[in-house]
Every structure is written in structure tokens, then in C-alpha cells.
Design a protein around this nucleic acid. Structure first.
Lengths: 147, 147
DNA sequence: TTGACTTCGTTGCATTTGCAACGATAATAA
DNA sequence: TTATTATCGTTGCAAATGCAACGAAGTCAA
């Protein structure tokens, strides 16, 4: 008979569990910005991040902060610009950079999404016994470097 | 001035946090099976799942249990079969099905990976104040349907 | 039995992805 | 200055992805 003591149970494996949960939540929440505004995940993150900053920021700034591929950001930004959700202008101090800025249209989107996002988040957190504690552990995991 | 009360902070948004953490852990752990056995994530999940079952199982069985696209499983299984990590045989009771079974080589891989995976998991859990509780919340979130 | 319908795994194909290379600009050093 | 090196954003391209369609096999009802 096999050595059952060293069996591997995928469903109990933390990285797998996290992946399952995250994918489900991600898919779930993405319905909100896909159906309402026809945005993909990268576009959503870019808009959300832009809304937090009051000066124009560069593409580099975005992909370094928001865990997206450089080319993904570049392409997403082009689409958003084409849809007049944000503007791309040349940075005059350093002409390699682009200045990205939400338009009124973009701001309207993030305004609406803010409420929806908060509602969704509350809904998820309501499933947990101690939401505060969960967030704390999550945050500590995120901020701790994993060796 | 803007209405800061309704600002949206991406870094504090639960789905975003989960995504960041999960991607990092996933990337991190994947080094183990990529570097050692040259497996991708789908291949890893398939092997892991197969190792838990003692009878041959079908492709459908796998993708319904392990949150992977049907075509992804089909292609991953072909690669694994080509590398003699598993065998594909026709199911005689229902000839639409294939019987998948780990070879000795496949079993050796999962045996080695089991230890590595457990070590990695412990490492991650060690970063958390109350690992048991965290798992419990995670499990409850996974098992709860999200409305 | 036949015919309609379902399910299985594979595959074709258009889209997406991520890496690397590129041109343009800037910073640094000689 | 000029030469070298680094950084920015874009783009080419090969590989990966996911959906839908397919043929093969099974089910069910008439």
C-alpha cells in the first residue's frame, strides 16, 4: 500500500485555494465593469489607479504600481484614449514620458464604479466571520516579502 | 475640492489584494515545478489531481474538478502523455472517455513535489499570525457561493 | 430499429499575451 | 562637444488562450 501520510491534496493546498477563490471573485466582479462600461481588467485597474492621483502620471508609473505588464498597460491606455476615457499628452519636462489624465467621462466611470465596488466588497466580506482580521492577515501577507 | 469620502483606493480593494497576493504566490511556487520538472500550471494541477485518485479518470473529470478549461486540459494531457508522465487509454465501457493514469515517472514527480509543496506552504503560513484561522476563513469563502 | 439529442475529447481559429527589440529621448562620462 | 549607456513607450511576433464547432460515441424515445 502507498504511503498515505505523504499524500498530496490539491484542494487543501494554499496556493491552489487562493487561486480558486481569487479567480472566482475576479470573474465575478469583472462582470460589473465589463457589462456596464465594457472595460477589461487592465483598463479597470488603470482607471482606478489614475483616479487616486491628482497629477498626470506616466505609463511606467502605472505598471510599476499596479502589477501589469508594460505592453498591456500601453495597449490598454491606447484603447482608453481612443474612447476618450483618458488623455495622453507628451510630458514636456521629459519627452519620453506620456502624461495620463482621466477625462470627465473617465471620472464619471470611476465615480459610478466606486459605489459598485464597495458594495461588492461588503458582500464578500459579509461571508467571513471576522472580516477585519481577515484583511489584516491579507495585508500582512502582501507586505511581507515571501522568501 | 473633490468628495474624498467616496474615493476609491485600489490597493485596499479586496479583489485587487487577493489578485496581487495570489499572483505572487502562484509565480513563486511555480518556479518549483517549472525549474525541476518543466511543468506548467495546468500540468501541475493535473498531476496533483491524478495522484489523489486510484482509478483512471477522464479529462472531463479533471477539468470539472480543477478549474481549468477543457481544451487546456486536453492539450496539457497530450503533452504529459508524450512525456510519459501519464498514460491515455480508451475507456472500454464508454469509448468517448479516456482513462488517465499516472506512470511511475508521474508518481515520482508528485512524490517529490509533495514535499516541496508542503514546505512552501509552511513557509507562507508562517508569515501569518493565526494560520489555522486564516485557512478556515479561506475555506468558508471558497465553499460559500458568492451571490 | 431509427432519429433526435447529449456528451466526450480534439482541434481550428481569432484574440490575447508576454517577451524582446526598436526608435526616441535623456542622463552620464570622457 | 561626443560617445556610451539607460529609460520610456510602442510594436512585432511567436506562443498561449478560450471559445465554438466538430466527429465520434452514447442515450433516450418513438
Amino acid at each position: 500500500m502507498g504511503n498515505n501520510l505523504s499524500e498530496f491534496i490539491l484542494e487543501d493546498f494554499l496556493p491552489y485555494q487562493l487561486s480558486i477563490l481569487t479567480n472566482r471573485i475576479s470573474r465575478d466582479f469583472s462582470h460589473e465593469y465589463v457589462s456596464r462600461f465594457n472595460l477589461d481588467n487592465a483598463e479597470w485597474r488603470i482607471i482606478a489607479h489614475l483616479s487616486q492621483v491628482n497629477q498626470p502620471i506616466s505609463i511606467r508609473e502605472i505598471y510599476s504600481k499596479v502589477d501589469l505588464e508594460k505592453s498591456k498597460v500601453s495597449r490598454a491606455v491606447s484603447r482608453l484614449s481612443a474612447r476618450a476615457i483618458l488623455t495622453k499628452t507628451e510630458n514636456l519636462k521629459d519627452r519620453r514620458l506620456v502624461d495620463l489624465k482621466l477625462t470627465k467621462c473617465g471620472k464619471k466611470i470611476i465615480d459610478q464604479m466606486t459605489m459598485i465596488a464597495k458594495d461588492y466588497e461588503s458582500e464578500v466580506l459579509a461571508k467571513i466571520e471576522d472580516p477585519e482580521y481577515f484583511r489584516k492577515m491579507l495585508t500582512s501577507l502582501i507586505n511581507d516579502k515571501i522568501a
